[in-house]
């Protein structure tokens, strides 16, 4: 889909450049032209030709041409009913400032990353939990707003496996900048494996005092499958396998989680997680180490 739009862009760009050059050249030529003073009748005739030709016909034809190409492309982007295999459904919910991703058919939930099968249409049902956000993965296709109280649907299809960058594109407050979605397109088999692994993932609770700290301080907002059921902040069940932390603030290298726990208000000022200054640093690093192990 994005490829069609790219072709459209280059065609329009070429045409627009041509028009710009021609109009500017005409203008400059008209300014420098040294001809004999024109009589009224000739001027009138010439004028009419300019107005009808340049003013009326040129824009009308260009615009008609554009619609002729553009509307069919738009038509193909519509989530129309399909005859054969039904598109896969994924729900994406925008939050200030992170993404909640749900696979309703398998009950899998994740955050700030979106796993897709390749070569198969995917219908994304998007909405928002607070303000208006907008879902956009530039390399895969157009964008669609995520609006509280409404469900919007966009159909995408990845044609090859790979990683794509998505970013919220409707201004949504202080950290609009850091609302990045990591999109991973897998071959059908890999995708099914990933989904399966997530479904079967067994997480044992963190033992000891750090476990209590996690329950008391983190579990009310964060969900870790089988451990805590918070739903106000990103699901952490597979946080160790994500490529980024804080919806695009840090790359998820060893140690990055601990840094995030200590410095998240400097790294992403205004985010909803409270400071952890009152917690024992040892407990924090135990929690961070444990979170890093959470992978499907």
């Amino acid at each position: 889909m994005a490829r069609e739009v790219a072709i459209l862009w280059w065609a329009m760009c070429a045409f627009a450049t041509l028009v710009l050059i021609v109009v500017t050249a005409l203008w400059v030529h008209a300014m420098r032209r040294k001809g004999p003073q024109m009589d009224a009748a000739r001027a009138r005739q010439l004028t009419l030709r300019w107005l009808v030709g340049g003013g009326l016909l040129l824009p009308t034809l260009s615009v008609l041409l554009l619609l002729l190409f553009g509307i069919p492309i738009g038509h193909r982007m519509l989530p129309l009913p399909l005859a054969g295999e039904q598109p896969m459904r994924i729900e994406v919910i925008g939050h200030q400032w992170w993404w909640e991703v749900r696979y309703p058919d398998s009950g899998v939930v994740t955050a700030n990353q979106l796993h897709l099968p390749v070569g198969r249409p995917v219908d994304l049902d998007v909405t928002s939990a607070d303000v208006i956000h907008s879902f956009w993965v530039p390399r895969l296709g157009g964008k669609i707003d995520m609006i509280p109280g409404r469900d919007n649907r966009i159909r995408l299809q990845a044609d090859q496996a790979g990683t794509f960058r998505g970013q919220c594109s409707e201004f949504c407050g202080t950290q609009h900048t850091h609302m990045i979605l990591d999109v991973q397109a897998h071959d059908e088999e890999d995708f099914v494996n990933w989904l399966q692994a997530r479904r079967e993932q067994q997480i044992s609770a963190l033992p000891g005092p750090a476990g209590e700290v996690f329950d008391a301080h983190c579990g009310q907002c964060h969900r870790v499958a089988g451990v805590s059921e918070g739903n106000r902040a990103p699901d952490l069940s597979d946080v160790g396998a994500r490529s980024m932390l804080g919806a695009g603030v840090l790359s998820n290298e060893p140690g990055a989680l601990l840094r995030w726990l200590h410095e998240h208000q400097q790294l992403k000022p205004g985010n909803a997680m409270p400071l952890h200054d009152d917690l024992d640093p040892d407990h924090l690093s135990t929690i961070a180490d444990w979170l890093e192990t959470l992978r499907p």
């Binding site: 300019w50 824009p59 553009g70």
Partner: peptide
């Protein structure tokens, strides 16, 4: 959306008329 899209493109026509009226004024 297509209604608004078509109407948006339509605005190019009166603008085109003005631009060419200016060019013609320079020409004569």
């Amino acid at each position: 959306q297509a209604f608004f899209s078509a109407a948006s493109m339509l605005v190019a026509i009166p603008t085109g008329i003005q631009v060419f009226a200016w060019i013609a004024t320079l020409w004569v």
